[in-house]
């Protein structure tokens, strides 16, 4: 009995060692052979999205841009300060630290084609509109409730899976901690008679868009135009404007309180003076007294005193016209 047991142990030992030797052989392979010739020629061309992208010298502007985007996507940067490590999204050319990783919206049907930074038309406000796109779904402003539709409501959805989630607790955190980067977005939906909620762009719409994009290449260009019209049929020509939500009205378009915004934040978003200013003044420039350290209060860059300014933009009194 003992000798059989000893024999079994011996065989198991041999099998284990064989497995280890094979694993080790595989493990040391890259260590031994990784010292390749390091002076490799850069590849003459690279396949990206099925497109042939040529080497830097021969590449067009568009090809270079695509290569850059591919290289930098999902890039992160880490700064070790000893007492803490700052891990953040790498944004090429962005000097200031952002100290966060952006949770991308993986589910919104609009961003599948329009991207996460879609606003570009209106120069003065495009960045602000894109800022809203960080935590407000496109359909919130671009699809308005139609007269024949049932009741609507707004909910937060998880950017990762599109499911309804509870109001993010970060809303009540201080601004420095997590302002706007909740991993969730506000989106509108319909309320059924039994009180159940369904997003306007729910699972069914997401599946449809996925399916459409998959089969798009099989359609003629005319058919694609037709489908474009169909997909955008609910989109309003004129989107919701800023004062739809940033209003002193008791019923802003987005019900902030219902969505978990604390009173302090609601006060900031619907500030009475702000709304009043919005209606009373038509232009705004920084008065020089707000620009300390730039030399004489009214003489920077050859600009004259109030009333004598060669550039009226610098003079608050001249440019802030009451309506």
């Amino acid at each position: 009995m003992y000798s059989r047991f000893k024999k079994l142990i011996g065989k198991l030992y041999a099998i284990a060692l064989i497995v280890f030797a094979l694993w080790y052989g595989n493990f040391i392979y890259p260590i031994i052979f990784s010292h390749a010739d390091h002076h490799e020629e850069p590849p003459a061309e690279v396949q990206v999205f099925g497109t042939t992208v040529k080497s830097p010298e021969a590449a067009s502007f568009e090809e270079e841009a695509l290569k850059k985007v591919m290289k930098e996507q999902k890039a992160t940067a880490t700064t070790d300060l000893g007492y803490t490590v700052v891990k953040e999204q790498y944004v090429k050319g962005h000097f200031h630290h952002i100290g966060m990783l952006v949770e991308p919206d993986e589910t919104n049907v609009c961003t599948r084609c329009h991207g996460a930074v879609p606003h570009d038309k209106s120069k003065p406000i495009r960045a602000f509109l894109n800022m809203h796109a960080f935590f407000v779904a496109c359909e919130t402003c671009h699809i308005r409730q139609k007269p024949n539709q049932g009741p609507w409501a707004f909910r937060w959805y998880d950017k990762a899976n599109g499911q309804v989630v509870a109001n993010p607790p970060e809303l009540v955190a201080t601004e420095k901690e997590k302002y706007g980067n909740y991993g969730t977005k506000i989106a509108p939906g319909t309320l059924a008679a039994d009180g159940s909620f369904r997003f306007l762009n729910g699972e069914r719409e997401r599946a449809f868009v996925t399916d459409y994009l998959k089969n798009k290449e099989g359609l003629s260009t005319t058919e694609q135009s037709k489908m474009k019209k169909v997909i955008h049929r609910m989109v309003d020509e004129k989107p919701l404007l800023c004062d739809g939500c940033h209003t002193s009205s008791q019923t802003p378009y987005i019900p902030f309180a219902e969505l978990g915004y604390p009173p302090r934040r609601i006060q900031q978003l619907t500030n009475t003076e702000v709304v009043g200013m919005l209606h009373k003044y038509s232009d705004f420039h920084i008065p020089k007294f707000l620009l300390p350290g730039t030399g004489a209060a009214w003489s920077e860059g050859g600009r004259g005193k109030p009333g004598q300014s060669s550039d009226p933009k610098v003079d608050w009194a001249e440019t802030s016209k009451a309506k």
């Binding site: 406000i125 201080t174 800023c242 900031q268 500030n271 003076e273 702000v274 038509s282 705004f284």
Partner: peptide, 19 residues
Amino acid sequence: KTRVILFFAALLLFGAGGE
């Protein structure tokens, strides 16, 4: 556009509630 511009301008002057 003007109203939007002024909205943010007004925020500058009056909405400075944050730190």
